[in-house]
Write a protein that binds this DNA or RNA. Structure first.
Lengths: 351, 351
DNA sequence: GACCTTGGAGAGAGCGCTCCCCGGATTACC
DNA sequence: GGTAATCCGGGGAGCGCTCTCTCCAAGGTC
């Protein structure tokens, strides 16, 4: 029943007005609102009634003008120029990847209890400036950055800006910023050893874009693990983490190497595409070809056969990012920290 | 070379300092920044140099304290309580649906040129309060609301709040808010007539959740169009717009009515699931069963066979939402308006 | 040459809030 | 009972910006 605000025409009440209503000073109302303990319980009660009666809401602009905090952080998903070649619009790609949902959920898990709002901003390259301006203006206290490509200048920009930020993966060039990551190489190794363990000998891999450190790590990890077992050469094709790219990469791979009987794909979405290609090629999974994905996203469960995949605890990772960021916002001097998580293999029907 | 801001320790320069540097008054600097034309070109130039030299960025809190504008709007994706039964986490669902990417892109198309930032906020039910608080605090000038279920109280809350807002579809209960929509019934009719035109006689439909006006409209439109052609009974099953739900709805439908040879599915994602089910059942598409989707999302192109579907111009619709919102923000008295778009059928391989 | 108009710059008053500092009241202690 | 310690509430000074109002100078008009 906050009846008195039909259309924003009349301004919402101010602290001053609440104070007047309650017959106390501005300071007292401010104390009540900010939960300072040195207020007489009776007065506190009175002020609370005044707040309810007037329908008072603190003016955030005024508050953050003096506190220099906004109690909100941004989740920025960045992408550099040179990746607009996939044909698929960037916005559709990021919003279609189950990745983002899990990251968001994990971050909110930590932020909400702290009363911190999360604001999501896509930042495909032409909009970098826009987003940077938003961040510089002090709209948020800090940034959780999902950036992929090594070529992406965004992390560097953010660093220059001095805005507290945490990255979702090891930055391509060393940067004094905290980040969270998973042991990519270990994940790839798990996939390699599993494929060998189930008796496959002709292994290949579909990697992510070769300008992403995580893609390179998965590729290198897979190769290294196989080298240990005597496999000197491992055919590979690169995709860009979309389903369609996985499909064409698989086609390419099998055209050149029809003997492949074990496939490691750098994410589930591409693996799903690869399954499609294999179906078209008349190959049975897992009988003819065993497939291992990466991420353990819902896509892994949605496809037939369900994917064996490398699980990475994205929600926990995002939660940790949020924690690192909050710590960083708290004390400005904190030095960059990294937190690395462990992957594990989930076996399903595709191997 | 904005050298003077290593770590937020020293405060960023203020208007005052820029004015001092340039040897002019605060007012003049403010005029330059806000593009007021009554400034001597020479002085303007001088001030610009001062801004560059000091690395000045306007303090948004201070500005919006006096202007009462933030130059940003929120895109809120809401979901009521009672839909958490699908098993799949809400955040994953919305971020996995190509829908959101297209909406975002369309809205940005209009907002960016105006210098307005877009902030995306998921608002699954337990977080409603959080998001409402954010909106009340005046963090944004207005809201683009994607809300689906008729049971969702969020639009009503928003309305009570007096925050300018535009809905993505006709609200379930009449509400004094602008909205954008597509002629759902006409879309369904297109599907029905197409299926009849290609000689199908046993038609059925997979609808969306029955608490969504758009789902009901599509269902009703499909039935009505068939009734005109003498089909009194049309089997149907409801899904929740996810791929998995489409798959199980199709299974259910064909178990009861194996004779079905034409299927209208209320969105592409569910249609994709239905294709999966049909494949499992050994039905060929389109030979045994013709399938028409709805949305014309990328999912329609990704699946095999590619989907015949009802195109709705989501990007344009979102752009129009943004336009309506900006108009509303401009003058507070504006009365609610609705803009309705026309669907059209895109024929591909599934019919 | 006196008057009026107009373009362009400065001064000042807030916007609504927090937070420091101070003062009055209450309690405690000698 | 006097003084110190403690507690709590009020007053006031800004935070950095915009915006109106005022003022000055230059140009135009009769």
């Amino acid at each position: 029943m906050t009846s008195s605000r039909p259309n924003g025409l009349q301004r919402s009440p101010t602290l001053e007005q609440v104070a007047e209503w309650a017959g106390v000073s501005r300071s007292t109302v401010s104390r009540v609102i900010n939960g300072v303990s040195t207020v007489d319980p009776e007065l506190r009660e009175l002020v609370q009634r005044a707040i309810d009666a007037t329908g008072y809401v603190p003016n955030l602009a005024a508050r953050s003008l003096v506190t220099r905090r906004t109690d909100s952080v941004a989740l920025v998903v960045s992408e550099p120029d040179d990746r607009n070649d996939s044909g698929e619009p960037f916005l559709n790609r990021i919003f279609t990847d189950p990745f983002l949902g899990r990251i968001t959920a994990g971050a909110l898990e930590v932020l909400r209890p702290e009363g911190i709002h999360l604001v999501i901003m896509p930042a495909e390259s032409p909009a970098h400036d826009h987003v940077l301006r938003y961040l510089r203006q002090g709209h948020v206290d800090g940034v959780l950055l999902i950036s992929s490509s090594a070529a992406d200048p965004f992390p560097q920009h953010l660093c220059d800006l001095g805005v507290p930020a945490v990255l979702s993966a090891r930055p391509a060039k060393p940067l004094p910023m905290s980040y969270v990551d998973v042991e990519q190489q270990v994940g790839a190794k798990l996939a390699a050893e599993h494929l060998l363990a189930i008796g496959r000998h002709h292994l290949a891999t579909i990697s992510g874009p070769l300008d992403m450190p995580s893609s390179l790590d998965r590729l290198a990890g897979f190769r290294a693990a196989l080298a240990v077992h005597g496999h000197a050469y491992v055919p590979s094709a690169a995709g860009n983490f979309t389903r369609a790219s996985g499909e064409s990469a698989a086609r390419e791979l099998f055209a050149a190497h029809p003997e492949i009987d074990g496939l490691f794909v750098a994410n589930d979405l591409m693996a799903e595409g690869a399954l499609q290609a294999l179906r078209d090629l008349g190959k049975r999974v897992p009988d003819d070809v065993a497939v291992v994905g990466f991420d353990d996203s819902i896509a892994a469960l949605q496809c037939r056969p369900q994917l064996t995949t490398i699980h990475q605890p994205l929600e926990e990772m995002a939660a940790e990012m949020a924690r690192l960021l909050l710590a960083r916002i708290g004390k400005h001097d904190a030095k960059p920290r990294s937190v690395i998580f462990h992957p594990r293999l989930i076996r399903r029907q595709s191997t």
